[in-house]
């Protein structure tokens, strides 16, 4: 029921994202574009709006799913994908790409962002996973915070030493779907799908982990391996999202909390719900951003924060968010 409603929400958000913008497009033109016609408004739709909507869909799904898994793996409700060092890794790689190698377009940053995200995630896991008991939630979270701070310093240094780098970096860092190349979604889709499949496959085991490590292992779950694979899913999904849109804040953090109020803690339901909810939030935010400051745009990353926070605060105040961990 909830999933059906969310699916309908995603479709509506997609439609809105295609129709609304600097130039409003009517439904018939959208249908003509879908039928393959390439003239007038149909051209706007098929050349600009479709790729952007697809990209938004991909980023939203990835972030919603990644946030859910990150919170389950670290068993910390504060965990968002950025916490495992992933966003910071992407940021430092992009800043280095711009500053040192002179890259100029998001299509060129993509693989830098992805590689940076993956390396930082792996490093966090290595540091957090040493010692007895493997990667415990607190160790992972602390290692993530430490790596984030370290990489953040490098990013700041790169950006501060060169104004030109800052000039490009600040538009990437705000998180936006504007001006992205049409091929981007197709390039990143394999990673997103692989991450989603892995995450879905892990949900029963991650459910067991929520009971605590001892209980989970007595239920026959390999705790260390599950956590490692979970972290892998987080890195893949977040890497794809960050590479596509920059560090969009808040989707990965808020959506799982909001959805948990409806689905309860069972990850088998929570994960798909969060993925769809992430897509609704991100597409809605992107569409709204196009209207708000017309003819300029408010970047999607800004709108998601302003839209997500009141939701989170209202849920906290109504006591819907219990301390489901510890």
């Amino acid at each position: 029921m909830l999933l059906a409603a969310l699916l309908a929400g995603v479709l509506l958000a997609c439609l809105a994202s295609v129709m609304i913008g600097a130039k409003a497009v009517a439904v018939p033109d959208v249908l003509r574009a879908l039928a393959g016609e390439r003239s007038g408004d149909a051209l706007v739709v098929s050349e600009l709006r479709f790729p952007r909507t697809l990209l938004g869909l991909l980023v939203g799904v990835c972030l919603g799913a990644a946030g859910t898994i990150a919170q389950a793996v670290t068993r910390n409700p504060l965990a968002d994908p950025g916490l495992l060092g992933v966003s910071a890794g992407a940021a430092v790689a992009v800043a280095a790409g711009i500053g040192v190698l002179g890259l100029t377009s998001p299509l060129q940053y993509v693989w830098f962002a992805f590689a940076g995200a993956a390396l930082a995630g792996a490093l966090v896991y290595l540091i957090g996973g040493t010692g007895r008991g493997g990667a415990s939630p607190v160790k992972l979270a602390l290692a993530g915070a430490a790596i984030t701070a370290l990489l953040g310093s490098v990013t700041y240094a790169l950006v501060l030493l060169d104004v030109r780098t800052l000039d490009q970096y600040r538009f990437w860092a705000v998180g936006s779907l504007a001006g992205r190349d049409g091929e981007l979604a197709a390039k990143l889709a394999p990673f997103a799908i692989a991450g989603l499949v892995l995450a879905l496959a892990l949900t029963p085991k991650l459910n067991a982990l929520e009971l605590g490590d001892e209980l989970a292992s007595s239920l026959g779950v390999k705790v260390g391996a599950t956590r490692l694979l979970g972290a892998l899913a987080v890195v893949t999904l977040t890497g794809a999202a960050v590479a596509a849109a920059g560090p969009v804040t808040f989707v990965g953090l808020v959506v799982p909390h909001v959805m948990r109020a409806f689905t309860g803690p069972d990850l088998r339901w929570l994960l798909p719900a969060s993925a769809l909810g992430g897509a609704v939030l991100l597409l809605g935010a992107d569409t709204l951003g196009r209207v708000l400051d017309h003819p300029a745009e408010v970047q999607a990353g800004v709108v998601t924060a302003f839209a997500g926070a009141p939701f989170l605060i209202a849920l906290v105040r109504r006591g819907k968010l219990r301390e489901h961990t510890r």
């Binding site: 800052l166 000039d167 600040r170 860092a173 970047q299 924060a305 997500g308 926070a309 605060i313």
Partner: peptide, 29 residues
């Protein structure tokens, strides 16, 4: 306190990035 704080943090962080992206580059740096 922590969760509400996170929410406020997200909003204000986004606001800061937005201000930076809108600003003149000298002021931004």
């Amino acid at each position: 306190f922590v969760l509400v704080g996170l929410g406020v943090h997200g909003v204000l962080g986004a606001l800061t990035s937005w201000l930076l992206a809108r600003a003149d580059i000298d002021q931004a740096s």
